[in-house]
Structures are given as C-alpha cells and as structure tokens.
C-alpha cells in the first residue's frame, strides 16, 4: 500500500496521530506537497464527504476525520506556500445576523476545507456588510450564509442586497443553507446556490470557484 493511500485510509478512521506521522514521513520521502495534500488528505476527506452525503457516516466520523486532516495539513501549510500550491478557491462563511447556531456552519466549513478550499470563518451573528467586506478584502469567490431560524433566514436577502450595492455580485456568489432554507427561498431572495447538506455545499462551492476563476 502506498503511503498516500495509507494517509487517506487512516484519515477516514479519524486516526489523527497516525495521519500526522505518515504526512511527516511522506514529506521526508520528498513526495511533492500537492500530491500529499490531494492524494492523501483530500482524497480521504472526499470519501468521508461522499459517505456523509449518503448517510453512511455521520457527524462524529466527519469530526474525527477533519481533525486528522487538520493535523496533517498543519505540517503541509508552510511547505505549500514555498511550493506555490494554491487553494481551489476561497470562501467566507458565517451564521447570519441574530442567529447563534453554528454546528451546521462548522460542518460545512470542514467539508469545504476537505475539498481544498480556503475558508474564512466569520463565526455567528454576522452582519451582511461584514460578509461582503470580508469577501472583497480577502478575495473570496463565495459567501456562504447559514441560518437555523425562520426568524433570521431573511437576513440572507440583505447579504445579497449588500453585495449588489457593492457591485460585486458578478464575481462573488452567495450560497445559502440551514434547516428552514429551501431552493424556493434561495431563488426568491436572489441568492446563487442552495444545498441541503454540508457535503453537497462543498461540492457546489468548488464548482462556483472553478467557474469564476
């Protein structure tokens, strides 16, 4: 078994310490950094994402896999900058103003990082202008808004409006999600993409980033 397959399989089992050791070993063996990332860490996370989408694994399995990924990635990060490895795209994510629920948002973030996206986490209770300003300042292609409450989901429309006011809706797209959010709601407020689960959100964000780049 190649070391990269080994990294992927241990990541899927959530064995963080083993993943970290194997990533160090792969670095020592001079395997290119982007190959360790893509064929080791992200390949493992991609399997977990698919299984999560199909209800074969659940949140706890995703959490331990993401922890393993982050431990491996912490070794790769400094080397990636040196090697000029670029992220697939950049997303800023947050739970909308007035809403403090972050479990779903955190899960989407993990899935997106597992697809090689760089994610700026704005936390919860995020004002519409904060999303837009961050996306502009940091060069994000996607703004990703989460809401759990019917009371707060209407804030998503304000994010779209702010983005349009800034004249940036052509180069930054708005994704929406969360328990009460639907495709119909997404269409109604002029957002660009709705997905029903975290793994699909990550796939959709990758597609958007590709189409913009």
């Amino acid at each position: 078994m190649s070391i990269l397959t080994d990294i992927s399989e241990n990541l899927q089992k959530g064995k963080a310490k083993v993943v970290k050791q194997l990533v160090q070993q792969a670095i020592d063996e001079k395997i290119p950094v982007d190959q360790i990332l893509n064929e080791g860490l992200l390949s493992g996370m991609s399997v977990i994402g698919e299984k999560f989408k199909n209800n074969e694994v659940f949140v706890p399995e995703v959490l331990v896999a993401a922890r393993a990924m982050n431990m491996g990635a912490s070794l790769l990060k400094p080397l990636m900058a040196e090697a000029g490895v670029q992220a697939t795209g950049k997303v800023c994510i947050g739970t909308v103003r007035g809403d403090l629920h972050d479990i779903g948002k955190n899960l989407v973030k993990m899935m997106m990082e597992g697809k090689g996206l760089e994610v700026v986490d704005l936390g919860t209770d995020v004002a519409p202008e904060t999303y837009v300003q961050t996306a502009l300042d940091q060069g994000c292609q996607v703004i990703c808004c989460s809401a759990l409450l019917t009371t707060t989901m209407c804030e998503m429309e304000n994010v779209v409006k702010k983005l349009e006011e800034a004249g940036a809706h052509d180069k930054i797209k708005v994704m929406v999600g969360g328990a009460p959010v639907t495709q119909a709601f997404c269409d109604q407020i002029g957002a660009d993409c709705y997905t029903a689960d975290a793994a699909s959100a990550a796939d959709a964000a990758v597609e958007i980033c590709k189409s913009i780049a």
Binding site: N55, V57, F58, V59, P60, E61, G104, A179, A196, D197
Partner: peptide
C-alpha cells in the same frame, strides 16, 4: 436528529 439525517450512527 438533524433536518435530514440523524446526529450519529445507530451503533454510536
């Protein structure tokens, strides 16, 4: 429970 799925596997 979550919106479309359970929070953890039945085994867990």
């Amino acid at each position: 429970g979550m919106q479309n799925s359970v929070m953890m596997s039945r085994e867990l």
